[in-house]
Design a protein around this nucleic acid. Structure first.
Length: 264
DNA sequence: ATGGCTGTGAATCACAGA
C-alpha cells in the first residue's frame, strides 16, 4: 500500500500537477492539504475519471483537506471531536484495516502570535483524540503538513531558525508527544540523504539553494511502522512551473511482516 | 537585510502562508 501526503497550496492551481502525479505514481491514498476550495468546487469528477474516490472538507480561501483513494473509504471524519474549530484542517477515513488521518496543522505565524497559541492548543487536542483512536485502530497513519521541523537536521540553517515558529521548543515538544503515543516518524526509519526537506520558500531562490525545512511528515503507529518498506520525499514536482512550495512524501507499507522482510 | 514570492478575493491592494 502506497500512501502519500502533499500540501498543494491551492488544488485549483495545482490540479493538472496532481492529476499527472496520480497517473504516474498510482498511490493507493493521496492526502492533500491547503486545497483552498469550498466543497461545491472540489474537482471530484476530474479525479473520478482517473479511478480515484474523493472525500474532502474545505472552505473559501484557506485550509481545506482531502483524501483521494483507489478504494472507497469508510467512517469519514472531518473534525477533531469536541474541538470547537471553524478551520477545515482534518479528514480521516478507513481503508481496509488502515485508519488514515490527514492533517493541516496551523502555521502559528510567530511565537508571539495568537495563532501560535491556537497551534499549540490544536496540537494538544489532536494528541488527546489520537490517543483514543490508536486504541480503536492499531493500524493508523497520521500524515500531513505538521508545520514543525522536529530536529535541527530538518532545518537548512538551524541557528537562524532556532526558537522561531516551526522550530520552537514547544512545537517540537508537541511533535515528541505524538511520538510518545507510539507513532514513528517514518522518514527516520530509513537512511536518508542529508539536508532532506519538504518545503522551500518561494522567495530568494530557496529551492535552488536547498534552503528548506522538513515539515511534512508521515507518522505510523507501531504496527504499521513494523511493516513499512520505505519513506521518501519526491522533489520532482517542486521543479515544475508554478509549483506548490511543498513536496509529496511517500510511504510504502507491506501487507504483513513476512512481506515486509522479503522486501528488505 | 523584516525584504523577498505565491494564491485568493477584491478592485490595484490586503492578508496569509512558512
Amino acid at each position: 500500500m502506497k500512501i502519500v501526503t502533499w500540501n498543494v497550496n491551492s488544488l485549483k492551481v495545482r490540479l493538472p500537477q496532481v492529476i499527472n502525479w496520480l497517473v504516474a505514481h498510482q498511490p493507493d491514498i493521496l492526502c492533500l492539504q491547503e486545497t483552498k476550495l469550498q466543497d461545491e468546487f472540489f474537482p471530484a469528477t476530474e479525479i473520478a475519471a482517473l479511478g480515484y474516490h474523493s472525500v474532502y472538507t474545505g472552505q473559501k480561501m484557506f485550509n481545506g483537506v482531502a483524501l483521494l483513494s483507489k478504494q472507497n473509504g469508510a467512517d469519514v471524519v472531518t473534525a477533531i471531536p469536541n474541538l470547537d474549530d471553524s478551520q477545515k484542517r482534518i479528514i480521516a477515513a478507513t481503508y481496509e484495516d488502515v485508519r488514515v488521518v490527514c492533517v493541516y496543522v496551523p502555521n502559528g505565524e510567530s511565537i508571539v502570535s495568537d495563532k501560535y497559541q491556537y497551534k499549540l492548543m490544536w496540537l494538544d487536542a489532536l494528541n488527546r483524540w489520537l490517543s483514543k483512536e490508536l486504541e480503536q485502530y492499531p493500524r493508523l497513519a497520521l500524515l500531513g503538513d505538521f508545520n514543525i521541523a522536529p530536529e535541527d537536521r530538518d532545518v537548512h540553517a538551524p541557528d537562524l531558525w532556532r526558537g522561531q515558529v516551526l522550530c520552537s521548543e514547544s512545537e517540537r515538544n508537541a511533535f515528541q508527544e505524538l511520538l510518545k503515543l507510539g507513532f514513528a516518524d517514518s522518514f527516520r526509519l530509513f537512511d536518508q540523504p542529508d539536508k532532506s526537506y519538504t518545503w522551500w520558500d518561494y522567495r530568494m531562490l530557496a529551492f535552488r539553494r536547498n534552503r528548506g525545512l522538513r515539515i511534512d511528515h508521515i507518522m505510523l503507529s507501531s504496527e504499521l511502522a513494523s511493516i513499512c518498506k520505505s519513506c521518501m520525499i519526491d522533489k520532482e514536482p517542486r521543479k515544475l512551473e508554478r509549483p506548490s512550495d511543498h513536496t509529496p512524501v511517500i510511504v510504502e507499507i507491506a501487507q504483513d511482516l513476512e512481506q515486509a522482510r522479503s522486501c528488505n
